[in-house]
């Protein structure tokens, strides 16, 4: 007799546990307001990445096309993957002395692991994170970027006040 009671209580418990699960999915079925999907390409206009988002390394330029990079090469040294290459050149300054300035700050996005060491160690805060994340291109060579814009120059340090 006991085993028969057990048999039927098993059925009852099983069915009620299944019903509990079905209630969960059923509740979501009748409340479509809880949909969490983001419709990505459509929401491009409103999609705002976090300001710390690590999209790519960029070098900000001001309105005079000037940046802060001195070409010291510390970022290149600190990069664990060799995704930064600094090419410098020597140009005469106003006093006629030859000084080293940045020619090309090459950034290989394809090799970058977004560890933030370059940005963290840059002594002049010349580079920072850009929020662009749509990096898909048809050719790998397009991922090798030159961060300083053509014709840009080093921003003069303002006289210490």
């Amino acid at each position: 007799m006991n085993s028969i009671i057990e048999y039927f209580t098993d059925i009852y418990k099983g069915v009620s546990s299944l019903w509990a699960g079905m209630r969960v999915t059923g509740r979501y079925f009748v409340s479509p307001g809880e949909i969490v999907t983001e419709q990505y390409p459509e929401n491009r206009a409103t999609l705002k990445m976090e300001e710390r988002f690590k999209g790519e390394v960029v070098m900000p330029h001001d309105e005079n096309n000037q940046h802060l990079c001195t070409g010291c090469g510390i970022c290149e040294l600190n990069c664990p993957n060799g995704s930064i290459e600094i090419i410098t050149k020597k140009v005469p300054n106003e006093e006629g002395k030859m000084v080293r300035v940045i020619d090309e700050h090459i950034y290989h996005l394809s090799m970058c692991t977004f560890c933030e060491l370059c940005i963290k160690t840059c002594p002049s805060n010349a580079i920072e994170w850009g929020q662009d994340f749509e990096h898909a291109v048809f050719d790998r060579s397009k991922l090798d970027k030159v961060l300083n814009k053509p014709g840009s120059s080093l921003k003069k340090k303002e006289a210490k006040s």
Binding site: T113, F114, C115, K120
Partner: peptide, 30 residues
């Protein structure tokens, strides 16, 4: 769905969702 909430917290603070190299010997990156 619920994991997404945590990843949003990560993204806000470290800028990345999965591989956040946020620690550094001596403390945190920022």
């Amino acid at each position: 769905r619920d994991r997404e909430k945590i990843l949003a917290i990560f993204e806000e603070s470290f800028g990345s969702r999965l591989l956040h190299s946020f620690n550094t010997p001596g403390g945190l990156m920022h």
